[in-house]
Computed example of a mutant assay.
Amino acid sequence: MLPIFQHAIESFNTHLTLAQSLAEPKKYYKSINSNIDLTLQHLMTQLNLDPELLQAKPYQLSGGQLQRFNILRTLMLQPEILICDEITSNLDVLLEQQMSNVLLNYYEETQHGMVIISHDMAFITATVERIVVMRDGEIVDDFHKKYLFSAERHPYTQQLLAVYDVEWRSKK
């Protein structure tokens, strides 16, 4: 089980290049796939990351680029369970869609589980099958995404959807 954290800048050593940072997990995860370099290249292509960026230090990248490297660093290890905590917070709408596709491809290729923590309903509905809604640390709703707008939804879920609807309408 490995996490992908929201704040990518805090998860990279600012003194190391991205290539050095991506080499670090190899030292500690001896059981990882021997094709990790091929996996890295594949993910860089999927995430639309220029290989020249590997020589940069974290502070030299945009927030979106760094978040994609943050995601890449975990996905290249192919954890059995991936925990994504607000991973789209620094991404624009196009990169968010791309991220959804990358996670869906990851699942199709590995059949490994994912837990996605997010307030972004558009990202959630595009990426997951089941939705679990929590309030104050307690599960208040659990359903397949096709039942998202069901009248049976918990009142808190309905509140979240109302906020999402207002935000969505204001972007039109």
Results as ranks from 00 to 15, higher is better:
M1K: 03
M1E: 06
I4R: 04
I4M: 03
I4H: 02
F5N: 07
Q6S: 08
E10I: 01
N13Y: 07
H15E: 08
Q20I: 05
A23G: 01
A23N: 14
A23R: 14
A23I: 02
P25L: 02
Y28D: 03
Y28P: 00
Y29T: 05
Y29L: 09
I32Y: 05
S34G: 10
Q41H: 09
H42P: 03
M44A: 13
T45Q: 14
Q46M: 15
L47Q: 10
P51T: 12
E52M: 11
L53D: 08
K57R: 13
P58D: 02
L61W: 04
G63I: 00
G63A: 07
G64T: 07
Q67N: 12
Q67P: 03
I71K: 00
I71C: 06
L72G: 03
R73K: 11
L75C: 11
E80Q: 14
E80K: 11
I81K: 02
L82Q: 07
I83P: 00
D85W: 04
E86F: 06
I87V: 15
S89E: 10
D92P: 08
M99E: 05
L104H: 07
L104F: 05
Q111Y: 10
H112R: 08
H112K: 11
V115Y: 07
A122G: 09
A122H: 11
V128A: 02
G137E: 08
E138A: 11
D141W: 01
D142R: 01
F143E: 02
K145N: 11
Y147V: 00
L148F: 10
F149M: 08
H154E: 10
P155N: 06
T157D: 06
T157Q: 01
A162P: 00
R169P: 01
S170Y: 05
S170H: 13
K172Q: 14
